[in-house]
Amino acid sequence: MRRGWWVCGIVGFVVLTATSMGALAGTADHEGQVVVYTAAQSTIVQAIGPMFEKKTGIKVQFVEAGTGEVLKRARAEKDNPLGDVFWALAAEPLAANADLLEPYTVTEDARINPIYKKGMAGGRVIPNNVTPMVIVYNKKLVSEAEAPKFWKALADPKWKDKIAYAAADKSGSSYTILATLLTVFGENDPGWKVVEDIMKNAKILPSSSRVPKGVADGEYHAGLTYEDAAMRQVAGGAPVGVIYPLDGTSIPPDGNALIKGAKHPKAARMFLDYAVSKEVMDLLAEKFSLRSARTDVNPPKGFVPLGEIKAVAYDMEWAGKNYAVLVKKWQDIIVRVK
């Protein structure tokens, strides 16, 4: 659920009120409301919010925006937090803002695959869904034989102005792709040269959601994006193909966290527990094509098994700690080549 960072800022508030009181509502010790900052797609917010309210009786107020805008807002509010929970944010920048987070271990932590807990701000960030980074291409514009099977193929000048990439300083998924490229090719001059050559060919977009849609609509031949966004286009009947790069890709988790100084901490912990419950993760896999960080949830129908994807050893802690440095280098490249 790695939504891009909207350039216009916060999308707005969606207030969902409980329509009935669930079994937990009569017995739970909580404040009765919770404010959730999220980068989840609006359709997911609209599905999960009422479910949580019905189950707990807790009113949920969502603030929807991209990862970067959410974190920017939370940092501005650090001395007087207005949010209680971060839900479905890109984990690397979330972990890089560990000083905004309060440690919390969800009740079903044992069901979360431990491989996704590494580099998560000392346990402050809770793995949510996991999302391989992919290449998407338009089948009407690019034949299967000509489709880029490797990240490095996108550095070929023949792709000039034909590929889409969301700005890495605005999109959580695009930052992950940037860090993935440097993991594959090295955080050195040759690695940055590959990044620069790809950026020379790319149209830089303001939000990650526009990448797969632009490819599906034929605006671009190919794009760098994340799996569930690409697969939603496939499910919708768009003429797109999805490639798991053969030179290796990352499979990072999204993250949830308790905001330090939250005004509704008890309700916030209940929301964090519910967000990674099997009930929610099964729904996200079945209805929204999202892989789960849990070990007991099946992958979405039609998805490539993770064992068939060439995964790189993606260092979440490194990606989080070096966020500002890597983004600055990327910005310098864009100034140079655009």
Rank of each mutant, 00 (worst) to 15 (best):
residue 335 V to T: 15
residue 239 P to E: 05
residue 237 G to C: 10
residue 112 I to F: 01
residue 280 V to D: 05
residue 175 Y to C: 03
residue 190 P to M: 11
residue 9 G to Q: 11
residue 203 K to Y: 09
residue 64 E to L: 11
residue 180 T to Q: 06
residue 122 G to N: 13
residue 159 W to E: 02
residue 157 P to H: 12
residue 289 S to V: 14
residue 131 T to C: 12
residue 16 L to I: 11
residue 326 L to T: 15
residue 194 V to S: 08
residue 278 K to W: 01
residue 155 A to Q: 03
residue 181 L to G: 07
residue 54 K to S: 15
residue 231 M to P: 00
residue 41 Q to P: 00
residue 242 V to Y: 00
residue 261 G to P: 00
residue 68 G to T: 04
residue 169 D to R: 12
residue 91 A to H: 03
residue 232 R to E: 14
residue 303 F to W: 12
residue 302 G to E: 09
residue 164 A to N: 08
residue 215 V to Q: 05
residue 119 G to Y: 02
residue 318 W to G: 00
residue 51 M to S: 06
residue 323 Y to I: 03
residue 58 I to V: 15
residue 327 V to D: 06
residue 79 D to V: 04
residue 260 K to M: 03
residue 324 A to E: 15
residue 304 V to T: 14
residue 243 I to V: 15
residue 243 I to M: 10
residue 44 I to L: 13
residue 213 K to T: 10
residue 149 K to N: 12
residue 45 V to N: 09
residue 258 L to Q: 05
residue 142 V to M: 11
residue 158 K to M: 10
residue 83 G to S: 09
residue 301 K to H: 13
residue 317 E to R: 11
residue 291 R to L: 12
residue 81 P to K: 07
residue 114 P to N: 09
residue 179 A to R: 07
residue 119 G to I: 05
residue 309 I to A: 06
residue 142 V to D: 03
residue 276 V to N: 01
residue 245 P to Q: 05
residue 171 S to V: 08
residue 314 Y to R: 02
residue 295 T to D: 12
residue 31 E to V: 10
residue 61 Q to A: 14
residue 307 G to W: 06
residue 180 T to C: 11
residue 126 I to N: 01
residue 134 V to C: 05
residue 242 V to C: 01
residue 313 A to R: 13
residue 289 S to F: 14
residue 94 L to A: 01
residue 180 T to L: 03
residue 274 Y to S: 08
residue 112 I to K: 02
residue 325 V to T: 15
residue 123 G to P: 04
residue 92 E to M: 09
residue 51 M to W: 14
residue 319 A to E: 06
residue 84 D to Y: 10
residue 268 A to V: 03
residue 106 V to M: 06
residue 209 S to Q: 13
residue 115 I to V: 14
residue 14 V to Y: 10
residue 128 N to T: 00
residue 189 D to Y: 00
residue 159 W to D: 01
residue 316 M to V: 11
residue 36 V to N: 02
residue 155 A to S: 15
residue 23 A to D: 14
residue 205 L to P: 01
residue 223 G to D: 08
residue 134 V to M: 02
residue 292 S to R: 01
residue 162 K to D: 03
residue 159 W to P: 04
residue 279 E to T: 14
residue 3 R to W: 04
residue 18 A to H: 12
residue 276 V to T: 14
residue 30 H to C: 14
residue 226 Y to C: 08
residue 242 V to K: 02
residue 202 A to P: 07
residue 305 P to D: 05
residue 273 D to K: 05
